Each structure stands twice: as structure tokens, then as C-alpha cells.
Computed example of a mutant assay.
Amino acid sequence: MPSAETIAEAARKSLDDSKAEDIVIIDIHDKSSLADVMIVASGRSHRHVGAIADRLIDDLEKVGAHAPRVEGLPHCDWVLVDAGDVLINLFRPEVRGFYALEKMWSADAPAPRATSRG
């Protein structure tokens, strides 16, 4: 299995080649045990999101990320491609705005609360 960095770079290149918009790469290795990297990108329409996802899956398989798990392809509002240590979220713009994943995952962890002892 290729490294998270290799998969993330292959995904970024594939998204760029497919004319995905607003590509954001977020390091989440300190925030979640789900993955090391989350990528969020938009397509202009259902058809564009589906085409981006299809090409992404092919490109990830070419670098050795065998059988990435995919959710959401039939509707193409939000497609999640799980490539192990890299999660790629593809949205139509209005759906992306509603969920605001990059805002949630980019936020710093809250500072620990001070406890008062009485």
C-alpha cells in the first residue's frame, strides 16, 4: 500500500486534471484515527462530480491504492472515496457549503478547560 503522501498527491493531481474546484487538503492525523489526510473538492454538477470520482478511482488504483471504497456515486451530490489513510470528499458546491467539512476539520482543537477546585 502506498503512503498517505503518495495517495494524497495522486488524488490532488487527479482532481486538478479533472478540473475539480476549490481543492483543499487537510492534515487530520492528529485529529482523527480515521485517516491522515482529508481532501475536499467541488464539481460543477452531478455529472462533473461523477466524472471526477470515476477518474480519481482509476488514478488511485494506478498508484496502488487497491479498491478504494466509494459512497454516494449514484446521486453525486457528495461522493466519498476512502483510500485508506486518505479520505476524498467530492461535492456539488451548494452541498459542500451546507456541510462545511473543511471548516470543521481545519479548526484547531479547543483548549482544555481549567477546572476550579473549591
Rank of each mutant, 00 (worst) to 15 (best):
D77K: 13
K13Y: 14
H46S: 13
M1N: 05
E9G: 08
K13I: 12
W78M: 11
D22G: 11
L60K: 03
D82I: 11
A65E: 11
F98R: 00
H29I: 02
R113W: 13
H29V: 02
L60G: 00
G64T: 13
D58E: 12
V81H: 05
G43Y: 07
D27F: 02
T115N: 09
I52Q: 00
L80V: 13
A114K: 15
E21Q: 15
P93H: 08
S32M: 10
E9I: 08
V95P: 00
V86K: 09
G84V: 04
R96S: 00
R117T: 13
A41E: 12
G72L: 12
D85E: 14
D17W: 15
L34E: 02
D27A: 07
I23Y: 11
A4W: 11
A83Y: 01
F98K: 00
L34P: 02
S14V: 06
L15P: 00
K13F: 15
L34H: 10
I26K: 05
G43A: 08
I25T: 12
S3M: 08
H66K: 14
D16P: 03
F91V: 01
A114I: 12
G97W: 01
S18E: 07
D54M: 10
R117F: 11
D36G: 06
I23D: 04
G72Q: 09
R44C: 04
K19P: 00
P74M: 10
V79W: 04
E102P: 09
L15Q: 06
